[in-house]
Structures are given as C-alpha cells and as structure tokens.
Design a protein around this nucleic acid. Structure first.
Lengths: 340, 340
DNA sequence: CTCAGGTATGAAACCGGTTCCATATATTCG
DNA sequence: CGAATATATGGAACCGGTTTCATACCTGAG
C-alpha cells in the first residue's frame, strides 16, 4: 500500500505540515517528533511522490538532453559528462534522441513539447540541423537552455562549442611542419555541416600560414560516413600520385579511405598519410593507428550541465548568454607517418 | 507570462472543466466553445503544465532506462530501440547511467529513487552486477520493470535476454564444421559475468557435440577489455603452435589479441583464426574484418519498451513475469579464415 | 512580572490540472 | 405530450505534496 503524507501524519499523530517540515528539514520541528516521524517513515518505507513535490515546488529536478543520435563515438561521452554533473546534484536526465522516430520535424516537436510542458528545469540541446523557428521557440521558453556546437548567442541562448578550426590548424601544422608535406587533400563532410566547414577553414588557414596554396582539385566533398570515404577515394585516386597526405573531416571517412588504400596495397603512413578528426574510440586500434583530433565531448557535457544548473538556480544573475569554447587536441599516432 | 487553465477559462468565458474537456477531447463540449477555446489557446500559446497533469492523472508518461554505461557499442542501440517505441507513443525516457558517479552503490540508490519516487511509469533496467537486495526492492515497486540480460522471473520481474549460449554454439559450429579446426582456445571475460559464462558454456557444448574435448589449458580468463586481450595473448603464446583458432568472449579482447599477433607478424585468418562476440560497430572495419556474433540490442530495447508500456497500460492482465529471449546471429567475416 | 522573540505545531491555501456529480437544456421516442 | 436520454456546462473535490500564517507555549531580558 502506498502511503501519503497525510497518512504518515495521522500515524505520527501530527499534521501534514509537520511531517513535511521534518522531511525537508525546513522550519521548526522538535527532536522528539522528528524522530517519531522518521521512525514511521522508515517502518512504512515512505517516499514522497515526486509528482506532487514537483507541482508544489514548481520544479522537476530534471534536465532535458537532446541528442542527434546515440550511435557514434561522442554521444555516449556527452551523456556521461551530463550525467556525472546531474547525478551529483540529484537531478535526472530526460533524454530525447532525434534519429529514433521517422521524421525530424516530429522529433523536434517532441523536444519542444518536453520543454514547453515544463517537464524539465533546463535543457541541453544538440541538434546540428536545427531550424531558426525552433531556436526561436527555445529562446522563448523561460528555462535555461544550452545549445551544443552551434552558436545562438544572438538568440539569447548559451552555447558550448568545440574549436574545430584550431584543431584543424593544429593537424595541418603537424603535417606540414613535422613531416614536410606540401600536397595535402581535404575530404569534407556534407556542405550543410558547420563542423565540416570549420575544419575546412582551419585547413585552409594553416596552409596559408605556411605559404602553401589550397589546390581546389584536392578538396573533395563527402558525407561523414564510412561508405562516403570509400567513394571519396575513388575520386581521389587520379590525384594520388601527387598527394602526400589526406586530411579527412572525420575518422569514419578516413577509415573508409584507409580500407580502400589497403586493398590496393598502398602503405598508409609511408606511401601516403591519412588523418582524421574526432578521435573515435576505435581510432587508436585500427591499422595503422589513426592520427586525429580529439574532441572533448565529455567536457562539453559536463560544462553544459553545470551551466544549466547554475542558471536554473540563479534565475536572474548571469543574464547575458554565454559562449564557451573548448579546445580540441591533436592526437598523433601512426597514420600520419610518425614512427614509420 | 505563463497562463494556467483557469486564466484560459476566464478568457473564454467558461469553466476550468470545460477547458480541460476541450483539451483532452473527453466528455461533452459543443463545437462552438471548443473552437473558441482552441483559438484562445493558440493565441496565447498555452501548453498545460505536465507537472499538474502528472499529479492528477497519477502518471508521468515517462519510462526509466538504466544503463551500465554509455560507451561501447550496445548501449546506444538499446537507447535507440527504447526511444523509437516511446517516442511513437508520446512517452519520454528518463535515463540513468551507472558509471557516471563515483560509486556503484550510489548509482543504484539513484535509480531506485527514481522508481520509488514514482518519477516513471515503468523502467527498463540493465545492471549486470545488480545485487539481490536491489532486485527485491525493484520487485516491490508497483510499476512494471523489465530487466535486461538477467533473468529475475523468480522475483516476478520480466526479463529480456539474449541467447549467448546459442550464439556461441553457432560460432564454434562454424569453426569446426566449416574450417575443420579442432584445437580452439577460449578467452573468457570476468568470472562474475553471466554473459561470459553462457558464451563459455556454448563453446563447451559445441565442442562436446562434435566429440572434441575442451582442453582446460586452452581456456583463459580476462576482463572484456582491449588491454585484457593483449595480456591474454601473452599467456596464450606458449600454446600458440598447437592452436588453430581463438574464440574471445567479446570483440574488444579479440581486437587486443589481433593487435599483438600482428606485431609478431602472425597472419590472422591464415595462420590462426581469431573470432569475437558482440559485433561492435567497428568489427567489420578492422583488418581482417572480425568474425563475430551479433547481439540484437536494438531489438532488446524495442521489446523491453513495448513490454513496459503494455504492462503499464494493462495493470492487471499478463500478471505472470515473462522471459523473452532474442536470438543472436553469427556474422562471418574474414578473421575466421573465410575467404583467405 | 511582562513582554519580545525563539520554538513547535496545525489549519488552510496553494500548485495546476482532472474528474465526479449536479444541473440545465435539447432531442428523441413511445 | 411527457418521460427518457443525449448534450453542455459549472462547481467542487481531488491528486499529494509545500508553504504561509495564526496560534500557543517557553524562555530570558528588562
């Protein structure tokens, strides 16, 4: 039988209010009654119903987390970061995944509902292809929102970003300065991807700084998938003899290319370098281990969650939207030619 | 300004009850007033507060999902399966991850709270090292619970299992029948792991059926990690010359072993077969592509979610706990020697 | 001794919805 | 045409807590 606070009160011979105060440690309750109440609570294994608590406290102690998908390397890391912070503060995570239903529009509606129905006290939204209408609606909600990897400061929304540009620069610096490569191809992700664009810009910038030009013939567009990498290789091959390195905008495409090259007997790292971006968890375990750029998604999760809680608990302070950018890290392994 | 149902009612010149009925399509409301109400709702962009709805309906339209971790291949698949079902029925997912805080005990308390505070209408629990006390508490909760990959039918809890045993049998059948291997080593996971045990039993059973004996010298114990695989190889090497195949209880250890072998110039698939279990998403992309056993974790997620909803909406029917076992699938690639 | 302030408690309002029940009007059927 | 039934609506109770406010006692200071 599920007890309510009134029944507990009756059993303890006191009023609801006193039980509530004893439970929350708020207001005055004598030691004696506190003990008596606690005993009864233990005896009947009473736990307050969160639905009632939420309503009267006008809070849910829950943070929404919206992710594009759950496959792939990062998403798990983001969740881990978020959960670490939330669990420590006794909050819960309400998860919504965009690729689990049929259509994107529907998925967006779903997370907007979650927010507008006030199921959560704040939300962390990772939606790379979000539309402006949705962002506007998000910004109209009264709860704190942190957007991941997209900058909506102008909409009054906090964002946590990853510095793709600098990561890319670091990678190309390494290829040029350490290995002396001059002829480097770049394999982009889909044109709509900001990440892909920023990584490409970093590539261009580093070349420029080294007085190398970016040969348009050596820039290929693909789609961030393994299969896309294989296809990109087919286009690449006609330029192959003049190439020293291939920089892929993510690890998955790099893997596709590496596989095709192996099939042709090309020695990766020696004949030609292939490097990626993301540092997927398998990147170090393929042959040869992939040189890549690590994205601190765990930290992204942690910082976003901290930010949401901070804002949620100080509604008025820190009113201005903030943009936090985390640094990426070059991970040198063998596929760039190091240690060959 | 956030409106309440009472304000809407006032604006429409009707009572709360009428607005509520119009909103839910329950009871009688004339077309005229319905339209009027809907117009006002649209105009002021009113959305009912879920906290109040939950309290009066005594439900949250939320299902708890407890996962051991979020790294690794399966967990994302489970989430996807669960989300697919829940999103279609307009439910939400409240996620708890066990490895995100410091200590396991704390993490268990957290998900027990989630359930006992009635934050969720049902829960899907994946906790491979759960203790009996926790299971008992789960079974005492009045909400439907589905346990993943552990059988607690005797506690009155539904479970969704994966047939590790048969998967293992299929694998060994393949190694023996297709390739004629007779001397096969097995690398176990940690002794506490049920999965490891079942996979081992399948290995033993298939050998027995083929009138081969299981040589204890060829059974090694490791810990399901990449590093553990490498270490296992060091122990293995003294038996190496008489080995034809190595069956690892998961892909990660197989990868560790493969890496060590490559370093020694051993040709995997030709000199010796190495196979795994899990079908991690990278398993097909390593060199050589890994022969392994696929676990249908997406389906596990889907079925558990369906089961929870079904029970939640028919509280009394189907009272008996159910155990559903899903089949695994042999994925033949190259590391077993096929296509060499 | 009296009064202010700290301590302890209960009654009642409140959070924002849903739902039961009573009432009133419209419609249908015998 | 009257009774039964369907339709439409509002009032009030309810979900299970929290919080405000009033009351009462107790203590110590003046």
């Amino acid at each position: 039988m599920k007890l309510t606070i009134s029944q507990i009160a009756k059993l303890a011979g006191v009023s609801k209010s006193t039980v509530s105060r004893a439970l929350n440690g708020s207001g005055y309750v004598s030691e004696g009654t506190k003990r008596k109440i606690q005993e009864i609570i233990r005896k009947y294994d009473y736990v307050p119903d969160s639905k009632a608590v939420n309503l009267s406290k006008k809070r849910t102690f829950t943070v929404g987390l919206v992710l594009p998908s759950t496959s792939g390397p990062f998403y798990g890391e983001v969740i881990r970061g978020v959960e670490e912070v939330l669990s420590a503060r006794k909050y819960f995570t309400l998860l919504t995944v965009l690729d689990s239903g049929q259509d994107e529009k529907q998925a967006r509606k779903r997370y907007l509902s979650m927010i507008r129905e006030k199921r959560v006290d704040g939300a962390i939204v990772f939606d790379p292809t979000v539309d402006e209408g949705t962002v506007r609606k998000l910004s109209e909600s009264k709860i704190p929102i942190v957007f991941l990897l997209k900058d909506f400061q102008t909409f009054g929304i906090d964002s946590v970003m990853v510095d793709n540009f600098t990561g890319s620069v670091l990678m190309v610096d390494h290829l040029v300065e350490k290995h002396g490569y001059k002829s480097i191809a770049f394999v982009r992700g889909p044109m709509v991807s900001d990440d892909s664009e920023q990584r490409f810009q970093g590539f261009v910038e580093s070349l420029r700084r080294h007085n190398l030009c970016c040969d348009n013939l050596l820039v290929f567009t693909s789609d961030f998938t393994f299969e896309g990498g294989r296809k990109a290789f087919q286009e690449l091959r006609k330029e192959l003899n003049r190439l020293e390195a291939i920089f892929c905008a993510n690890d998955e495409m790099a893997l596709g290319i590496i596989e095709e090259m192996k099939r042709e007997g090309i020695q990766i790292g020696q004949d030609i370098a292939v490097v990626g971006f993301d540092d997927a968890f398998w990147s170090g375990h393929i042959e040869p281990p992939l040189t890549t750029v690590h994205q601190p998604m765990y930290e992204v999760g942690k910082i976003s969650a901290q930010r949401v809680l901070e804002r949620s608990n100080n509604p008025d302070v820190f009113k201005d939207p903030v943009k936090i950018t985390l640094q990426t890290q070059l991970v040198v392994r063998k596929s760039c030619g190091c240690g060959c």
